[in-house]
Amino acid sequence: MTGVENSRAAAAFVSPAALVSLAIAAVPLLFILYTSLGGAALSLEAFENLLTSTLFRRSLYTTLEISVSASLISLVLGYVVALHLARQPPRRRAVYMVLVLLPFWTSILVKSYAFTVILGREGVINLVLSWVFGTQVALPMILNRFGVMVGMTNYLTPFIVFPVLASLLAIDPALYRAADIMSARPMRIFFTITLPLSLPGIVAGVSSVMVMSLGFFVIPALLGGRQDVMLANLVDFYTRETLDWNMAAAIGVLLLAMVVLLSAPALWMRRNQLAGKA
């Protein structure tokens, strides 16, 4: 096949999807940019308004705070599971994998509802505590920061497990054997072999989880309170409640910029890995 022939074949296969994406993904993004600049006015007014708005600044801070802490907690939880999975023989690993895949595929609405049943005022935990202590216990565990954190870490943990497991499985077993022969202690093995060599998985996992949590909408809306309004909820508020589309679009542009910046390390890591392999 000649080069021209090759391109023509490729065009035939790729162009339908590319055209749909251009029309339904690229154009809407341009619409956001255009709207954030006040349409034909091309002014930065919406951005200036955002930066002086207390509501926006508080919600930006809340978003960063929740995203960072939820990502770190899910990293710890996911790492524990990935370590356990990596130790299993392949057959048993496939079985344990279902325990990660089922929550991975469970709808975020099901999870949010489940947490209102578990953590709610008359929820399972309060019921058990009331029974244990013999008095009415009603710890507030939803519609506050605690509820958001539980819901988010629950949702994000599987997304850490997959990349970390992949890099744990890529570690050469000979290293462990060598460490064992040298009678290194478990902690030392973990900190000199396991942890550094799983770094690519950690970076990939944490950055994808951060990217996801910046845009979280359902969990803060259903499990959070007034203090836990994240940027995505603010977009919803401006779009549908106050009909201030310029503000909503400006937040959208900022969210997009943050996401692009954050996914850079993962992309960079992958390119380095590919370069290393070549």
Binding site: L29, F31, I32, V211, F217, A232, V235, A249, L256, V260
Partner: peptide, 10 residues
Amino acid sequence: VIPAIVMALG
């Protein structure tokens, strides 16, 4: 990578 909320708004 694009947050669902941004796509939704667009």
